[in-house]
Write a protein that binds this DNA or RNA. Structure first.
Lengths: 214, 214
DNA sequence: ACGTGTGAAGTCGTTCACAGCG
DNA sequence: CGCTGTGAACGACTTCACACGT
């Protein structure tokens, strides 16, 4: 049975899948854990441990058959289906996410776009009309939206999250620099662009002041 | 001496700093670890352990003086200064990052903008002219750029990283869905938007198939 | 003989409990 | 007495070593 997959393992599994899809496109029939590890930036040990979370996927003495495990991984990671997404916030970030090809390529379809600013209402981006927030609940229900993306200012984030949850969304990807509280049963992942930059700055700075050990 | 700060601790310290700056603006003079923990979404234990990485910052029986530790935190996290940043890639993501206020508010100034597409050359975004890649090296040196942001397609990412490193950049924030290899002494942080969505999808999906324990 | 799967050992981070200072 | 600082216990993830299937 698929016992819990640790978070770090999940991230790596997604990277392995990327690499394996590339190998599949190139026609590589089989790959060993050490090669996959090198391609994904980790070790053979780690690759085997991670993949073993999902069952017995390889063949001893041979390696992993690319054609076999790509579908297995896709299914295990819930990527063998399409996800309908609502995007809230038609600002700079919202516009970029709306146009981002990476989402659609991986099965994430933004099917509705909302903004509280009436001046933006009716504008069209990437074939989507900007709808007023008042229509969020009905639209999410009608279109069967399962995931929401928040791309609004920090002060508005919690309110938007509440509305998304009330509309029945099961997961939220939050780009606002604010902590969001949701009831159990709803998943949240936050991406804070400034925090990413700040982490980088710290690492750069720490490395200058602390030269590596002798 | 400031011994190594674990990565998860670093992330939390940045969140504490946000909360503390808010408290400072509100005029709160002092705060205890349990309140700060609640505000930042963690525990009092964790707050004290994290802050103790940076030295003895609190007063027993009192708590932490907001006015004291905000500057201390800023200095320890290398946020008591400005960072000059070069942005490569004038596509959707690049445009959004260029206009993103959060960076400037936190001391990250995008001072140069590059794209390999000659048609975009000379366009102006947020008071920045799009420059050709050929000018990257000289411009980075002249302006004293320390950090680079990559917002180009995956296939171009490694090449851009190489050019940034050759130009003397010390850290790279990578938004391309590709692994980037840099020499030691250069820091990289990657943000893969599709992977974030994929993780969310997995968590939502896993929760449906595995109801919580009895 | 080769490469996977996996228990065991090791490392890192979190949680805890209480001593210690204001 | 209140709240911090911190060593110690705990738990999670990683690294390792080797048995096992092909």
């Amino acid at each position: 049975m698929p016992q819990a997959v640790p978070r770090p393992t999940l991230q790596r599994l997604l990277r392995y899948l990327r690499e394996l899809e590339r190998l599949e496109a190139e026609g590589t029939p089989t790959i060993a854990s050490d090669e996959l590890g090198a391609a994904a930036g980790t070790t053979a040990h780690q690759v085997r441990k991670d993949l073993s979370c999902l069952g017995t996927l390889g063949r001893r003495g041979v390696g992993y058959r690319v054609g076999d495990i790509v579908p297995t991984l896709r299914a295990a990671l819930a990527l063998d289906r399409q996800w309908r997404v609502a995007l809230v916030g038609a600002g700079n970030i919202g516009r970029a996410l709306c146009a981002y090809r990476g989402f659609r390529e991986r099965g994430f379809h933004i099917v509705a776009l909302f903004d509280s600013d009436p001046r933006k209402e009716g504008c069209t981006w990437a074939r989507l009309k900007v709808l007023p927030m008042g229509q969020l609940r009905r639209t999410v229900a009608e279109l069967g939206v399962e995931l929401g993306i928040i791309a609004v200012p920090a002060t508005a984030a919690q309110g938007v999250a509440d509305q998304l949850v009330a509309a029945g969304v099961r997961g939220i990807l939050n780009f606002a620099p604010a902590r969001i509280i949701v009831p159990p049963g709803v998943q949240v992942r936050s991406v804070d662009l400034a925090v990413e930059a700040e982490q980088l700055a710290f690492l750069v700075s720490a490395q200058s002041t602390q030269p590596p050990q002798p």
